[in-house]
Design a protein around this nucleic acid. Structure first.
Lengths: 205, 205
DNA sequence: ATTATAATACCGACTAGTTGGTATGTTATA
DNA sequence: TATAACATACCAACTAGTCGGTATTATAAT
């Protein structure tokens, strides 16, 4: 019987994440988490002082991965072109490809799960989610500001909300994908965002 | 102290709806509902055989209102123009105006709330939500098919997912609006959908 | 109109089971 | 052998739901 504290911790967190995405935080019990993780109650409360703390640490880990994913994808897009518009279009395409490769509907976004039960969480957690979402706004908006320097939009648009639209489409498409049980939804919606950006900024040939 | 069963029932349902949108179904207790509604436990279980039944009836009422709202708004738009494209653009604008008139972030969508705790609900409820969402797809897609007859799209697009995009934007914008505490988000995002449709289908002057 | 009858609407203490969390013990590892 | 990493038994608070009873309203015969 060997012990691996980091593995135990991870098992608990992964089990909790899955359960929370299916049942929500309020609908997820500690007993259910430890059963799925295959650990004892003692182990759980050894690693986490409370269910609330688990909720906090879980979304913190999620936010870190999310921010990293955002940065990496944008970096990758920037390497593949010099033109800001092309970079942005590639950026969206990379997400689209990623989502198109999924066979099942995306399991869901922890931010959205928490937001839909926001009164169960304290302000620190809500602020963390807010700032994580703002990172998307900031990075995409900055890129959009580069874009408009050389590609005047065909119609007057607000760049901040246009930047937000990417995350809006992610979150909305996750919901529809889950409800309609259609895995392709997210990729399709990202494709529309891609087309929208093209129509707005690409010069006619 | 006079009795009004319909009023009691409504008070319970409204209280439950608010609490569920804030805490989720799993995070909402019957005690919390009856306290907010100002009724006794006996009254609650006189009107609803279980918490689960309340959840079912609640989303049924919500779906009925939603379908009616969809129909009414589309009817209104169809009265204001003869051209399918203009009808569609007006349709979106009507929602945009409605959302712009809100001072606080929209309290949220019950469909999304349920979907984010889908394992707490039986298949009947999930099917009801699915069909409610498909109503949006069907009606908007039908209108889009009218549109393309006279207005060829500037880029090739899939009409079904373009129809879905309206609901996607609603759901996604609700999440961001709530998290960022910005009431204007939903209207702004609908405006982008409006612009996208214009760029896709409107002839250049 | 009045009153007997019955049905509905409602109350709140109670219960069986569940919840998050703790106390105390056992096992592995440094 | 000291400490971290677990396991087990347990607890107090809370949970959905019940139950015996009361108040109000509807019905209908007088």
């Amino acid at each position: 019987m060997k012990k691996d504290p980091t593995a135990t911790r991870t098992k608990i967190m992964n089990a909790a994440k899955t359960l929370i995405l299916d049942n929500g935080f309020g609908g997820t019990t500690v007993d259910a988490v430890i059963e799925r993780a295959g650990v004892s109650k003692g182990a759980f409360f050894h690693h986490f002082s409370s269910k609330a703390e688990l909720g906090h640490i879980l979304v913190k880990r999620y936010a870190e991965n999310d921010a990293q994913h955002l940065d990496e994808t944008l970096d990758k897009a920037e390497e593949l072109s010099d033109d800001p518009l092309q970079q942005l279009l590639i950026f969206v395409k990379l997400f689209e490809q990623e989502m198109r490769s999924l066979e099942d509907p995306f399991p869901g976004c922890l931010y959205a799960s928490y937001i839909h039960q926001s009164e169960l969480f304290d302000d620190r957690i809500k602020e963390l989610i807010r700032e994580s979402m703002l990172k998307w706004r900031i990075r995409v908006k900055a890129k959009l500001e580069e874009v408009v320097e050389n590609h005047p939009p065909k119609q007057e648009v607000d760049l901040e909300s246009l930047a937000d639209m990417l995350l809006v489409i992610f979150e909305g498409a996750f919901v529809l994908s889950q409800s309609l049980k259609e895995a392709k939804t997210v990729a399709q919606q990202l494709a529309h965002y891609h087309t929208y950006l093209q129509l707005l900024f690409e010069e006619k040939g």
